[in-house]
Design a protein around this nucleic acid. Structure first.
Length: 277
DNA sequence: CCTATCACCTGCAGGC
DNA sequence: TGCCTGCAGGTGATAG
């Protein structure tokens, strides 16, 4: 599912639905999701903890457990469901369940099993958690500016699309929004970033924030008909300008939208509106 | 240091 | 219908 807007929607929805439950028990059916050498330790630490606060960094969900933090990345298809503990569920794809003190369960569902969870003793500077080793500033972090990205990127020999997907440069953008950002900036996704000007970088930040903020407002993007998780079906797919529109007419100029692969990722663009630098 | 490629998993759509 | 291939909103490890 998730890029930044979907993760933001999930964390807000979970906070609204769960508030501040205490986890009474944890049931693990597939333990590779727990990305730690000692899975038992993860379970022991989580048990009896209360979720005090909900937040996010890039595409990571962060649950504040007081003296510990529990971090989850949904990767491609991870979903959380909140259901009464007696309610039936998909046993084939539900890998971890958290029994709560209010009689409900928080259930982690993940068809492809790519998602990952971590738990760490809480520290002040979040960026020091091992799972954030390759994660930089969140797209909405005020310290992230055009100048900041320019300094980090202008000497590199990668394409714009690759830069947008690089979580160490800007955390939160994924394949769908990367295409939308390139379109909004009127830049070809294969533009080499060293050819971009400082003002291009400024525009990239502005457009990226504008598009992702709009997507958050719409509750995220839901494409491909996966079963929806509670409250997590968005409406932003109605506003996508290029992604998924192969062979359709560009909304701006009518040119047929092209699909190619950039660094193995399906990439959509308008060859008329989007120019290489 | 850098970039490219593979590996991790499963389900589904499309072609034959 | 059944089989095979390619593709999917991600990222870490490894190879060059």
């Amino acid at each position: 599912m998730p890029e930044l807007p979907e993760v933001e929607t999930v964390i807000r929805t979970l906070e609204h639905q769960l508030q501040h439950p205490t986890i009474k028990e944890i049931y693990v059916n597939y333990d590779k999701i727990i990305d730690m050498s000692d899975k038992k330790q993860f379970m022991e630490i989580i048990k009896h903890k209360t979720i005090h606060n909900y937040s996010r960094l890039g595409k990571y969900l962060i649950f504040d457990l007081g003296d510990y933090v529990w971090i989850t990345h949904l990767r491609m298809e991870g979903k959380f469901f909140v259901q009464n503990k007696d309610e039936e569920y998909d046993r084939k794809h539900t890998h971890i369940r958290f029994l709560l003190d209010d009689g409900r369960e928080l259930r982690y569902h993940d068809t492809r099993k790519f998602g990952r969870m971590y738990v760490y003793p809480k520290i002040d500077n979040m960026e020091s958690y091992p799972c954030f080793m390759h994660v930089g500033l969140d797209l909405f972090d005020p310290n992230l500016t055009g100048t900041y990205i320019y300094q980090r990127a202008h000497h590199r020999s990668i394409t714009l699309k690759q830069l947008l997907l690089d979580q160490k440069t800007m955390a939160g953008i994924g394949n769908i929004y990367a295409d939308e950002i390139c379109f909004a900036c009127q830049l070809h996704p294969e533009t080499i970033v060293s050819h971009l000007l400082k003002k291009d970088y400024e525009k990239i930040v502005v457009e990226a924030r504008r598009i992702l903020a709009g997507a958050i407002k719409a509750g995220g993007t839901t494409i491909r008909s996966y079963s929806s998780s509670l409250g997590v079906d968005g409406r932003f797919q109605l506003e996508l300008k290029v992604h998924g529109r192969k062979d359709k007419a560009c909304f701006v100029c009518g040119t047929t939208i092209q699909k190619t692969f950039v660094a193995t990722r399906g990439t959509y663009f308008c060859q008329t509106c989007q120019k290489r630098r």
